[in-house]
Amino acid sequence: MTAQEIKDIFYNGLWKQNTGLVQLLGLCPLLAVSSSVVNAVSLGLATTLVMAFSSAAIAPIRNYVPNEIRIPVFILIIAVLVTVIQYEMNAYMYSLYVVLGIFIPLIVTNCIVLARIEAFASKNTATASALDGMAMGLGLTAVLMVLGGIREIFGHGTLLSGIDMALGESAKSLVITVIPDYHGFLLAILPPGAFIVLGLLIATRNWLTLRAERKAKAQQTASQTPQAAIA
């Protein structure tokens, strides 16, 4: 793999084809658990792990699995990986496991996982597929982190609350109180807040893309016809 290929994969996953903002796949857990940064990032990372490992596991066997049964086999592999992660979280991050609840096993049904396997891993090498799964997952995690951050600041006035659930009691000091004595804007924490903030994030992304395109166009015309630019 060339450096350019790797760069393309990551550019695709993090920005161009971002699952949360562009493909809009797997939004159900995204909206449900993004009420705080810790919850959001934890589920994002769990999804990333599943995506990276399942893509890496499926790419090398893609030529040995008959086409007719490929979906059951893929789902089986994803389900195994998800369950392993579920066991590990249950054992070592119990309170986080309780908070994320049903959304960990539901990663199996998250369409983005199967979508990347069908679209990418079943046509590419194991290394490229693993990187693609990771990039896509990290793109999702990044959106979840911003979404969770905005909702947490508006809803509770804090950041990173509940970090002790993931990193142990000693991490409690990492919690940041952004706005002291905050009344709490419950709408941000409740489901409608997730939709509103996601909508605003998508709008921001579209605005940035449009602006970049306009700039590129302006530059292009400027370099082609210098006079026009002056006029």
């Binding site: 009344h183 709490g184 804007f185 419950l186 709408l187 941000a188 409740l190 409608p192």
Partner: peptide, 8 residues
């Protein structure tokens, strides 16, 4: 609606 949900 926003107010009654957020600041009941």
């Amino acid at each position: 609606a926003v107010l009654i949900i957020s600041f009941p």
